[in-house]
Write a protein that binds this DNA or RNA. Structure first.
Length: 901
RNA sequence: GGGGUCGUAGCUCAGCUGGUCAGAGCGCCACGUUGACAUCGUGGAGGUCGUAGGUUCGAGCCCUAUCGACCCCACCA
């Protein structure tokens, strides 16, 4: 089959991927006695579609996976998707709203049916998109965080934590989203600066009648105040210890308490305490045994009589325990939103003259990371994980180096989070997620935490039982991902063989959410950290450096890019030259240049294949040309460098090296040089070069395959005597028999001469097509190399005829000249040469060489340098000096000659 | 308040444990239809590596300070 002149990715990608997948090439196999290489894919949310972040994420993973597969490791890349509890539920509710439906109107069961349908639709879509990227993961092992196995793992973990006393239920302060109507974890709160005010309020002291001034940013919470705090050391208020204030508007008597939370240096030193609606106040409340009074409903309105009645009933029935908040009937404010209540309360207080002043203030307000609604801190009954005990071994795992972050600096992020860990609120008031495996007996009040669904109360046998309404935080199941996906809690063969996995690839933005929790649960449940390396990458930003987001509308759809430029080009543009952990800007310019690179590879391959015909010339028994030896040596260097970069996870540099080798050395130099032999008469030499062209091309394609899987495999199949797919071929290794340092050095010298001639011609404005005579006077030791360079010079530097001059032999006629490392060059240009101009040009070069000499002499004249610098470096410097001195002498002589003409 | 990142050619960025590191891509200028490739080739211009000190024989690369852009965590009655 003939190769097209221009590489067309659309023509091959789809078929190639299908073939890979159907052939089972992605499937992992356990090979006893061989150490596997395993990556568990961070599961994308089923909410949306693939974005550039995913594209980068899976490109990095796929590159690592393909590299290891070619190295011969039993390789597993396990894919999957995440149910993304709150994110998905929000989407589904939005979609339902368009049909005029609500969760409540639908009911839990019907809602979940919809959710599963959603999963089917969108989960499938994202997986299709990943395939377009060329990911070589083992689809036969694909998992979902809510599939049977993962759910079992979740339940097991919950029960174990409970049994160890690390999972508890308690009334605690949570971040409440009135819009999503659920609690969210601290990590899910986004702080945003907002314009607001400081309201300075006056509370009358009952005993003394004086007015206590205090400031608040949330006056609407005042009805829930159950104390006012002052600092015990504060002399201003020493006389108020043990006194009370009358809470304005409702004339409720509340105590003045002394607490360290009241900071004498801030404001008036007086703080109102609303234990039910502020985290700090909650703490104060605990210390002073203050009642908790709720004034907000779950959906962000002021509580009223009905709410109070409902709450009272709970207490009466004994279902609400001591320590839970009571509810206030806010009277005229009942039913208002918190913002409406703020206005109303402030204006009523103003009417009473109880607002001393209002000052403007910018402050950070917590918002929900999903819907961006302002978070209301609220006391509510939730399930928490006691994190401190499980965190200690997880910190140790990183400290001891069992898990390393790449780049290392992200270790600090991890440590900072872990060392200041707080209890993790894991219950969510949602329907989509893993239901909390806890049942309550309606008759005896027994609480049951169970691995299997019960039919009756385990204590009293009553069948009047109900399950906890809440589900678990989505990160709870994510935390188990590295082993739940391998079959845990069952001791499966996969689990035994592939756990612990090797590398986790993810963005720095979820180190706290996810990475820390995987390490924690991995160490806790499996006794072993889930991966030895965490490879952190940055965010993909838009061309202007902004985060890609829906609201900005600056997101780029990876699929559109693939349609236009091909998956290989997209992948390459996302990794090449990108340094680990740093954000990158995405631009179509980059994709375009990657696309051009693909085309370059395609055409270089075409050239090779046109010359090979149908024969696969072997490397054995050949006599290689100087150029052959040079490219083989350079290939060896490149294999070493690229492999080293893969081992260091520095994929950006690995890709860059391959690019440079392919384009600058293989295409620009070797292919051009090879034309000399390919068009020559010497059949042996021709066969040798054919062998080298084929060998280097194959090696290059292999090195490139992890980044550009499609084009490399497509081309590989055209090459005579290759079998199967390149993805299952072997990674190139260095071969001492194919390294020729001396020959390579000579070739570099010749290349330098070629550059010098091109340079001369360009400066003299000699048209490329116009051939020129060349006289070459080799320097000492270069005669042999230069004598063999004639054909190269003819082809590469448009020389018509080359004449070798002996040592000291003068060039005839008017010439322009140059001095390179290997030789002096003269090109006769007849009367075209302006002698003064030529002198000026040479003088400029001479001065530059003189500067180099000066620098080298300075260095070598420095005792410190001679004494402390490595000997090799000193030697190198001396050589360089000698070469330059020679060059300077030649230039001076030449300038003299010209002046005498 | 604690921690971190970035500031290198017009633009986007690479530069490994300090010693050919002053680089690449894009852009720009000049020339070019040499049968792999114009998604190309050849040549060229452009930077005292934010600023000021310091360590060192030697510093984009280490230290200190400073300016500028940004991120994370904690907190702000």
């Amino acid at each position: 089959m003939e190769m097209e002149k221009v590489y067309n990715p659309q023509a091959i990608e789809g078929d190639l991927y299908r073939e890979w997948e159907e052939s089972g090439a992605f499937t992992a196999h356990r090979v006893e006695g061989k150490k596997p290489f395993t990556i568990v894919m961070p599961p994308p949310n089923i909410t949306g579609q693939l974005h550039m972040g995913h594209a980068m994420d899976c490109t990095l993973q796929d590159a690592l996976i393909r590299y290891h597969r070619m190295k011969g490791d039993p390789t597993l890349w396990l894919p999957g998707t995440d149910h993304a509890a709150i994110a998905t539920e929000v989407k589904i509710v939005e979609a339902m709203a368009k049909e005029g439906l609500t969760k409540e109107s639908l009911g839990r069961e019907k809602f979940l049916e919809r959710a599963w349908q959603w999963k089917k639709d969108y989960g499938g879509r994202i997986v299709h998109q990943q395939r377009r990227m060329g990911v070589s993961c083992d689809w036969s092992r694909e998992r979902f965080t809510m599939d049977e196995g993962c759910s079992k793992a979740v339940r097991e973990t919950f029960c174990r934590l409970y049994e160890k006393g690390l999972m508890y239920r308690g009334a605690r302060m949570v971040n409440w989203c009135p819009c999503c109507q659920t609690s969210i974890s601290d990590a899910e709160v986004e702080y945003k600066e907002q314009d607001s005010h400081f309201w300075h309020l006056l509370y009358p002291v009952k005993e003394t009648g004086e007015m206590l001034e205090l400031a608040t940013t949330r006056p609407e919470t005042m009805l829930g105040d159950t104390a006012v705090a002052i600092n015990a050391e504060d002399p201003r208020y020493a006389h108020l210890h043990g006194c009370h204030v009358l809470l304005p508007l409702i004339d409720k008597e509340i105590p003045i308490v002394c607490d360290e939370h009241a900071d004498m240096t801030k404001g008036t030193g007086v703080v109102k305490i609303t234990p039910a609606h502020d985290p700090n106040d909650f703490e104060v409340g605990q210390r002073h045994n203050l009642p908790l009074v709720r004034v907000f409903t779950d959906d962000g309105h002021m509580t009223g009589a009905a709410d109070k009645a409902e709450n009272d009933e709970l207490f009466a029935s004994g279902k609400a325990a001591v320590g839970e908040p009571t509810v206030l009937d806010c009277g005229k404010y009942a039913g208002m939103t918190t913002l409406e209540a703020r206005k109303a309360i402030v204006s009523d207080l103003e009417a009473l003259g109880l607002v001393k002043k209002i000052e403007p203030l910018k402050h950070e307000v917590g918002t929900c990371y999903r819907c961006h609604t302002t978070i209301e801190p609220m006391v509510s009954k939730q399930w928490f994980v006691d994190m401190k005990p499980v965190t200690i071994p997880a910190i140790e795992a990183v400290k001891s180096g069992k898990t390393k972050f790449v780049p290392e600096r992200f270790t600090k992020n991890y440590m900072n989070w872990m060392e200041n860990i707080r209890d993790w609120c894991v219950s969510r008031q949602l329907w989509w997620g893993h239901r909390i495996p806890v049942w309550y007996c309606d008759d005896c009040g027994e609480m049951m935490v169970l691995r299997e669904d019960p039919t009756c109360c385990t204590k009293c046998g009553s069948t009047h039982i109900h399950q906890d309404e809440d589900v678990l935080d989505t990160w709870f199941s994510s935390a188990l991902w590295p082993f739940s996906t391998l079959g845990w809690p069952d001791q499966t063969e996969d689990l035994k063989y592939f756990y612990p996995t090797d590398v986790l690839v993810t963005g720095y933005d979820i180190i706290t959410f996810w990475v820390s929790r995987m390490i924690t649960t991995g160490v806790e449940e499996m006794g072993e950290t889930p991966f030895h390396t965490v490879l952190i990458h940055g965010l993909v930003r838009d061309a202007l450096g902004r985060k890609m987001s829906k609201s900005l509308g600056n997101g780029v759809d990876p699929l559109e890019i693939i349609d236009q430029y091909g998956a290989d080009a997209l992948r390459t543009s996302l990794v090449m030259g990108v340094s680990p952990g740093n954000d990158m800007r995405f631009s179509t310019d980059k994709v375009e240049s990657a696309r051009n690179f693909a085309n370059k590879i395609w055409n270089a391959s075409r050239f090779v294949l046109m010359n090979l015909g149908d024969t696969a010339e072997p490397m054995e028994g050949k006599t290689f040309s100087a150029a052959d030896k040079w490219i083989l040596t350079r290939l060896d260097d490149t294999i070493r460098e690229v492999t080293a970069h893969f081992e260091d996870y520095d994929l950006g540099l690995a890709a860059q090296k391959i690019y440079d080798f392919a384009w600058n050395e293989f295409c620009d130099w070797y292919i051009e040089l090879s034309k000399v032999t390919m068009n020559g008469e010497d059949q042996d030499a021709r066969r040798a070069t054919c062998a080298v062209l084929r060998h280097v091309l194959i090696s290059l394609l292999k090195l490139l395959h992890p980044f550009m899987p499609f084009i490399t495999d497509a081309v590989y199949r055209y090459i005579p005597d290759t079998e199967g797919t390149i993805m299952l071929s072997s990674w190139p290794v260095q071969d001492a028999a194919l390294v020729f340092p001396e020959a390579a050095r000579e070739m570099e010298g010749v290349m330098d001469v070629i550059r010098a001639v091109r340079n001369l011609r360009a400066e003299m404005n000699v048209a490329v097509g116009k051939r020129a005579h060349l006289m070459v006077r080799p320097k000492e030791g270069w005669t042999h190399a230069m004598a063999g360079a004639e054909e190269y010079l003819k082809r590469m530097a448009w020389v018509s005829e080359m004449k070798l001059l002996g040592d000291g032999e003068a060039a005839e006629g008017k010439t322009v000249s140059a001095v390179s490392e290997a030789a002096e060059l003269f090109i006769p240009l007849g009367d075209l040469v302006d002698i003064d101009k030529e002198i000026a040009r040479l003088t400029k070069e001479r001065d530059s060489v003189a500067r180099d000499i000066q620098r080298a002499e300075g260095k070598l004249g420095n005792q410190g340098f001679l004494a402390k610098a490595p000997a090799q470096l000193v030697e190198q410097e001396k050589e360089k000096l000698a070469v330059n001195r020679d060059k300077l002498a030649k230039l001076d002589a030449r300038i003299d000659d010209l002046k005498n003409m």
